[in-house]
Every structure is written in C-alpha cells, then in structure tokens.
C-alpha cells in the first residue's frame, strides 16, 4: 500500500495546477486512515457500496447496459477508465479528461453524466448505459439512425458521447426546437465540425418523440 501514498517525489507533470488524480487518491488515503473497512472486505463493500473506505483495490458490481458486471478497482479509478479498461466499453471516449468535451457521456439512471470525472465506486446500484447499448442486433435507437441519415459524424471520435447527450436531451425535452437543441447540446466538442448535421439529427429525434435508452 505504500505506493498509494502520494509522495510527490517525482515531477509535477502538467503543472501549473495540481493533478486531479493525486487529489482523488489523496482523499482516498485520508479516509482510509479513519475508516474501519479493509480492502478485502467484499461483504462490507457491498453493504455500504458508496463509502470510500480505502485506497486499495476493491471488488464492486456495476449494472452496465442491463448486465451486472463485477470488477476490481481502486477508489481513484474513474467511471470512464473502469468502463473502458475493465469492461472494454469504449464508446465512452477519453478525450479531455476534465469534464469539458462530453466525449465520455454515459447515462446514469437515465441522465447524462460525464464519466471522466466521476469515480466508478460511486455507481454501484445504479443503472449505467453506454452508447453501445443503443445498437443491438435486434434494435437500433432512433438517435443512431438520425446521426447516420444526416451524417452527424466524421472521424466519429466525439460521436458516441454526442449520441448519448442527444438521447438524454431528447428524453427530457420532447418537441425541442432547433434553438433549444443549440442551447441544450453545448456540452460536447467536435473537432471535425459535425455540429450542423448533429443539430439536424437532434431536432429530428426531438420532434418525432422517438424514445430510447
């Protein structure tokens, strides 16, 4: 466990500014000093799943795309990294890592959340949905169809995050106008420049009230 204590003997990689992961790890370690739970205490982790009890890896269960998935992660591991690296659900894209660009957007209990700045251990017992779930062999969400129809993508790297933002926005804003879409979808960055066609796709879905994930 000694390596989990932030010693800062090394260089500050991207200063000025502190590294967020140091903070997350530091706070985990601080809590560990007073908490009673231990790393291997699976039963405890399940009983009180949201409690940050230690900085050591712990076994958690996440409900992702309708399936219970078990994984072992340190408390400092973000939901984004857990989805991508432990569950291979890479629709959740790692782009800004600072809750700025929306590429990591997933749904938690139906609401869009930026997975890069939330911890995986926060979400036990909640329903997590990634863009992968919007297209199965038997069903394709209307948002996916609209993105393809209007060519709401180029390189495609920001696209799954945008799709999840649009799905969330259309669920909560049926009948949204074009202007509503412009205001409501400002959380996602695209570098190739697909906004014009994403807007058409979002407006079409909002107007046709096609519900989805």
């Amino acid at each position: 466990m000694s390596h989990d204590v932030p010693t800062r003997t090394g260089p500050d990689q991207h200063s000025p500014g502190f590294h967020r992961r140091d903070f997350l790890k530091g706070s985990g370690a601080a809590v560990a000093a007073t908490a009673m739970a231990t790393a291997g205490d699976d039963a405890r982790a399940q009983v009180a799943p949201k409690k940050i009890s230690t900085s050591a890896p712990q076994k958690i269960k996440l409900n992702v795309n309708g399936q219970e998935r078990e994984l072992t992660v340190e408390p400092r591991v973000t939901l984004m990294d857990a989805l991508r690296n432990d569950l291979n659900l890479t629709a959740c894209k790692d782009v800004c890592d600072r809750a700025v660009c929306g590429a990591c957007t997933v749904h938690i209990d139906g609401k869009p959340v930026l997975a890069c700045t939330r911890l995986a251990i926060e979400f036990t017992g909640q329903k997590i949905v990634t863009a992968e779930a919007l297209m199965t062999p038997t069903k394709t969400d209307a948002v996916i169809d609209a993105f393809v129809k209007h060519d709401g993508m180029q390189c495609g790297f920001c696209t799954p995050g945008f799709v999840m933002a649009v799905r969330g926005f259309c669920n909560s804003h049926p009948n949204a106008t074009v202007d509503d879409c412009r205001k409501g979808l400002g959380g996602n960055i695209c570098r190739c420049g697909t906004y014009d066609s994403v807007l058409k796709a979002a407006y079409e879905v909002a107007q046709t009230k096609k519900g989805g994930a």
């Binding site: 991508r84 890479t90 959740c92 990634t130 393809v148 799954p160 799709v163």
Partner: peptide, 19 residues
C-alpha cells in the same frame, strides 16, 4: 449515408487505436 461504418461510429462499437 455512411452505410458501413456510420452506425458503428455512432454507437461507439467502432474501435480506435485508443480503444
């Protein structure tokens, strides 16, 4: 429309090097 890769990109099933 992008018939081959459009839906794969939109649903995140397309795999990039970073994935």
């Amino acid at each position: 429309p992008r018939v081959y890769d459009g839906a794969a990109k939109a649903s995140g099933q397309a795999k990039y090097s970073n994935d």
